[in-house]
Amino acid sequence: MEHSFWQNLAGDLTAATISASLVAPTVTIIDRALVEKASYHKPLLQSLRSHAHAALKHPRQFLFSRPHGYVFTLYAATYTVANGTETITKQTHPSISDAVTFCCTFLVNVPLGVRKDIRFAQFFGTSSQIDPGRNSPPLLRKTGSAVATGTLLVRDAITIFGSFTLAQRCTDVIPDSLAAHPYSKMIFTQMVVPVLSQIVATPLHLLGLDLYNRQYKIPWADRLAVVRRDLPSATVIRCVRIIPAFGFGCLANTGLRSLFHQ
């Protein structure tokens, strides 16, 4: 019994590592393109093409880069904690397993997600660009960074809720005419509900990036104008982004975990 338990935990870790390896390259490229779009209005398709080409041309350099490392760490930790917590609680406290698993996953994913976004803003945002027409950068306010972090925390809370809790709850409302088998319903909701959550999360994402990139006094009307300007394209690309991260990624993690447990 104990041997099987430790084998399951090893399978949890292996499944999480493989799943994170599958989704991290795509998410890294998309997230960089989103930051560049929000920071200095670089066309999304141009960014996606150039960064994908660079990754394919220099795969080793890309895979061992710091941006890719942040994304891989985020999803590897998220999947590992979700898997391991469920394995442990199903054996020790099965009645509260789902609640504990969600809470632990949330507490790991959100701080790492915000940390990743702040690092991406530093790597690829306006703060990393040199403006030759400005003798010195604008005076930064620490409160701006705190507000940006809080905004991104709310954004991630919406994403996690939509990807884990809401997606599972919605399986019961899927009619049999659309998907008869419970597993088919789970696949459908896991692919659709997280995507729809980005309609709410994307404005917060853009606002958080603007608060970080421009940490000085600006009328809120100007900030909201930037959000409105980039919202349509950013919403589309974040909906696409969520498919590998919390669609295929979660499905791959679940399938591999079941395989290794057997």
Rank of each mutant, 00 (worst) to 15 (best):
Gln190Pro: 05
Leu56Phe: 15
Thr189Leu: 04
Ala15Trp: 00
Asp172Ser: 15
Val23Gln: 03
Gln46Trp: 10
Pro182Lys: 05
Ala221His: 10
Arg66Asn: 14
Gly84Phe: 07
Cys104Gly: 07
Ile187Gln: 12
Leu139Lys: 14
Cys170Pro: 06
Ala148Tyr: 15
Ala38Cys: 02
Val236Ile: 10
Phe5Trp: 06
Tyr75Ile: 00
Phe106Ser: 07
Cys250Ala: 08
Ala245Ile: 01
Leu224Tyr: 11
His41Phe: 11
Gln61Trp: 12
Ser145Lys: 05
Thr89Asp: 09
Thr189Pro: 09
Ala221Phe: 03
Gln262Cys: 10
His58Tyr: 14
Phe260Met: 04
Thr171Arg: 14
Pro182Leu: 10
Thr92Pro: 07
Val23Lys: 01
Ser258Trp: 11
Gln198Cys: 02
Leu211Gln: 11
Ser19Cys: 03
Pro138Ala: 10
Leu63Arg: 05
Gln262Lys: 13
Ile237Ala: 06
Leu45Trp: 12
Ala82Trp: 06
Gln91Ser: 14
Ile118Trp: 13
His51Gly: 09
Phe123Gln: 00
Glu36Phe: 01
Thr85Val: 15
Leu63Trp: 08
Arg214Ala: 11
Gln262Trp: 11
Tyr75Trp: 03
Arg119Val: 09
Trp220Ser: 04
Arg241Gln: 04
Ile218Gln: 05
Phe164Gly: 03
Leu140Glu: 13
Cys103Glu: 11
Asp156Pro: 00
Leu48Met: 06
Asp98Asn: 11
Val114Met: 04
Ala245Asn: 00
Arg223Val: 04
Tyr79Asn: 06
Val71Phe: 14
Tyr79Glu: 06
Ala148Asn: 09
Ser19Met: 05
Pro138Tyr: 09
His261Ser: 14
Ile88Ser: 03
His261Val: 04
Thr80Trp: 10
Val35Ser: 02
Thr149Glu: 10
Leu9Thr: 03
Val200Glu: 02
Leu206Glu: 03
Leu153Pro: 02
Gly247Asp: 04
His53Trp: 10
Ser21Asn: 02
Lys42Ile: 02
Ser128Thr: 04
Val200Thr: 03
Arg238Tyr: 04
Ala201Pro: 08
Lys57Ala: 15
His58Trp: 12
Arg49Val: 13
Val71Pro: 09
Val236Thr: 14
Phe164Ser: 06
Ala33Cys: 08
Asp230Arg: 00
Gln168Phe: 08
Ala33Glu: 01
Gly208Asn: 06
Ala225Cys: 12
Leu209Met: 12
Ala10Asp: 04
Lys42Ala: 06
Ser145Leu: 11
Ile243His: 00
Glu86Phe: 08
Gly255Leu: 13
Phe188Trp: 12
Glu2Ile: 11
Asn135Glu: 15
Ala54Ile: 02
Leu44Asn: 02
Thr73Ile: 08
Leu74Val: 01
His181Val: 02
Pro25Met: 05
Leu256His: 06
Gly247Arg: 00
Arg229Ile: 02
Ile118Tyr: 14
Asn135Leu: 15
Gln91Cys: 08
Gly133Asn: 15
Pro175Gly: 00
Gly125Cys: 03
